[in-house]
Simulated assay, not measured.
Amino acid sequence: MSDAPKPRRRWLLYAPLGIAMAGSAGFYAMLRGLQSGSYDPRGVPSQLVGRTAPGFDLPPLESANLPALADADLRGVGRPFLVNFWASWCVPCIVEHPQLMHLARRGVPVFGINYKDRAPDAQTFLTRHGNPFRRLGRDEPGRVAIDWGVYGVPETYLLDKDGIVRWRWAGPVTPEVLEQDIGPLLRRYA
């Protein structure tokens, strides 16, 4: 008997090399896309874009003295508005909060969904940073976030005056996102 590997087994030795080459090619393509601007790492597609929001009925954050939030509240707003998923434990939510406050001061309706948070912590966050929300619902179990396809907080959706989801942003709303994306979309769907 010979100790030489059989031809079929020899091909198995090349499998890890092939996998590494395929991964390298994919990584290279992603880097080229980032360089040319054709790849957006935050551009996670959403099944909701072009549709109305899924049905939901959330309890209020009682200490905030704001009305609860349900899907019916997202119809008939009469102008484009935002739905923002956030949490007090979310560091990027602190980064985006000044932009939400700015939009609220400009009269843009912002509806909040507090995601998997403790009510006292959520209230402390709003007391410390301000409250930009017209209505605020608590999604403590996270079921509504699942129905919306939320990957993590913060996540923001822009809906038109008829309540159709037109845009989604996974990550904090920065001044650049506000200027380059949200501002033009608010004008477009006004």
Rank of each mutant, 00 (worst) to 15 (best):
M30C: 11
L159G: 00
G43E: 05
W86N: 05
A22D: 05
L103P: 05
G163I: 01
F125C: 03
D147A: 12
R188C: 03
M1I: 10
I113F: 09
D40A: 07
A15I: 11
L186R: 04
L48K: 06
G107M: 06
P109G: 10
R105Y: 04
Q123A: 13
A104W: 03
S38K: 14
Q180S: 13
T124P: 07
V95L: 14
K161M: 00
N114D: 12
P5V: 07
G171A: 01
A29Q: 14
R51W: 03
D181C: 09
V83A: 05
A87F: 06
G23N: 10
L69D: 00
G149Y: 09
A29Y: 13
V150L: 07
P175H: 05
G33S: 05
V144G: 00
R134I: 05
Y28W: 15
P120G: 02
L103G: 01
T156Q: 03
I182K: 04
G163A: 00
C93A: 08
L126K: 07
A104E: 05
R79G: 11
L66R: 15
Q47Y: 04
R9T: 15
N65H: 15
M101V: 09
L100N: 06
T127Q: 13
R9S: 12
R118D: 06
Y39C: 10
N131Q: 12
D57A: 12
E96M: 06
F27M: 08
F27C: 07
G18N: 04
R32V: 14
V44Y: 14
R168Y: 06
G130V: 08
D73Y: 10
K116T: 01
Y157R: 04
T156K: 04
G183A: 13
D121K: 12
N131D: 12
A29K: 08
A190T: 02
A170I: 02
A190L: 13
L178Y: 15
Y14H: 10
M101W: 11
I94W: 08
G152T: 01
E179G: 07
W167R: 01
A64H: 10
